[in-house]
Design a protein around this nucleic acid. Structure first.
Lengths: 197, 197, 197, 197
DNA sequence: CATGAATGAGAATTCATTCAT
DNA sequence: TATGAATGAATTCTCATTCAT
């Protein structure tokens, strides 16, 4: 899946990014200094610049890392030949798993993306749109088939993603509800709503 | 509804806060300098400090303004004697209205609240919890009555609020869908889900 | 001794000066703001400027108040016709009394006089010199008479004043030793030294 | 005596401290800006912060430098086995020498120590007390032996140190009286007083 | 007399980034 | 690769003083 052999440099870079992510989550992008990151990564400020050429690049790399991996995951599901309902379920399960795995990265994504350079901002937003489009397309397919009783696939997509994304504000991986249990509850509400009929 | 007569200072402070809000939304809290705010408000840097004693107080005031007004609105509905379903509908309509009216404030609330001082952070989080509790209580009432087919009122509340709050990421007040139309669509999904049964 | 009838303004000014003195002792001249002084005196910042035209004038007035009164006291003793030893004793007793009464003013005098404007600096230093000269003259008279076994009246004067002035660093008016007891001890050391002979 | 080999950084730091000391004596702590110090030391403001992390640390370092060296000097004398009178004489000669060598540092010590942070304030005051205790102990030893005709060693210590310390207000190293001459005069007054008997 | 608003200059400090070694 | 020194621009905040009302 991932490269087993990585150069020392790559390791070092990953360490720096991990350290940065932790700090960004705790203190925010601007309140975290390059010095802080260097300290946390066990490197000097000057040394850090051998791996990453600016603070913005750190932020961008963090975005990239999470959004690319997430997109790849969904893409694989999209390409499977599944019924709309099954596809939506699998997409959503994957999405919740991504939220679980990349809680920190998602947190800073929603808070700090406007600190990206205009060029990187565009790249990231494009990927986010592609990500969302996978949901929109799955919903649209089901809407046309008559499986989903929805008016507008995009609005529905935002509805579902919104409900899911909000989880990063409150979801505690060590809390009482395991993720698959939550996924079941969420799916149920999405499919049938909350009203007893 | 609002005071018609306000002292000059109150006006000035409101001007400063409005200017700050606009800038915070556009550039984020840290990338907006006091100088930027003062310029936008047509006042000198020193003058600004006559009305607000720190940059953090500006952020806090913006939070306060929106979260207190929002809470009052919901509180009034909570105190009406309504059936659970009716109450939830009214609460949600009010909530979407608040999102509509305070889109900018909510944007910076979710992005920048961790720039508040510890004391103000506590105050704001307390109010946010009170706000959410109104939804949780309404859902719990319906759950006990058997009107709502839900397992857990808090998770359901987060589900609904999450879906709604995410609107501030994409909702355009001048877009094709008017707010009441969106409210109808959202309510429908919350009540009945998306599956054709 | 002092005016029994004073205008309201004069009272107000005295209040301001007293408030300022207390604050200067506690926090130093620069760390005390005009706002602090105004607050302590129960007046507004703008109001304060009706009584004193600058922060420096406050400092100068405090110096004046203490150094003029002190000088007058010594002057009266100087003009009495006394034997050198008696005169020195009376001068020193008066000096210690002044230190007792104006501990705070003396503290800020030695710490903050270099914050005076050049003109006021000159005035204050002139008065300090006049004050010291009274001691030098008394010593010189005794030296010529052969009452005092000293080489240089100025150095001796500094020796005596130094020993006395240092008291403001440690003298506690509510401590175990009353002032007259201290005066006796000091005079004894000045007259006979510390060696058993 | 002192390290012959010092790192470049140590040199730079010493340069900054020396520049600061000169300026503090001339203009006082608060009227000297970091910019002033940086300019005088031939470094940029930002560069200065590479060596010292705050203005307060500059002040503290200046205090430390002088008070630690002074204390070491006295400590060595205290540990010699000398008769009380001889010990007092040597202590006082050393003390006057310290005043001669560190006139500037002592000046700002007495004027500006209340600008230290509470923690550093404590440290400095502790050292000052230790310094004074050396004199108190020497006097107490002589008082018990009957060599000194004094009532209270602490008051006597303050008397002597006060007389000596005051020298920094008027002593001019290039004046007519060399230091050892002054030491002789002072010692004479301390030992025998000023009265012809 | 008194006030509150406003000013403008200056202060300490932070920090991303560069670069000689 | 790695470092520590250095830079320079930006930033928040303070404050003595003025002045219209």
């Amino acid at each position: 899946m991932t490269n087993v052999v990585q150069s020392k440099s790559t390791d070092r870079k990953v360490e720096i990014l991990d350290a940065a992510l932790t700090l960004f989550v705790k203190k925010g992008f601007h309140r975290t200094s390059i010095q802080d990151i260097a300290d946390a990564a066990g490197i000097t400020k000057g040394g850090l610049y051998h791996y990453l050429k600016s603070k913005e690049e750190i932020l961008f790399s963090l975005h990239e890392r999470f959004i690319s991996e997430g997109f790849e995951k969904l893409k694989l599901i999209e390409e499977e030949s599944l019924l709309p309902e099954e596809k939506l379920v699998k997409l959503l399960e994957a999405h919740l798993e991504i939220i679980h795995d990349y809680k920190d990265a998602i947190t800073i994504f929603y808070k700090e993306y406007n600190n990206l350079s205009p060029e990187n901002y565009k790249i990231v937003l494009k990927k986010r749109d592609d990500y969302e489009d996978i949901f929109v397309n799955a919903l649209e397919e089901g809407r046309i088939n008559g499986v989903f009783n929805i008016e507008n696939s995009r609005i529905t997509s935002f509805f579902i993603l919104g409900a899911s994304n909000f989880m990063y504000h409150w979801y505690n991986p060590n809390g009482e509800k395991p993720l698959d249990e939550l996924a079941r509850i969420y799916l149920n509400m999405i499919k049938h709503g909350i009203l007893n009929e």
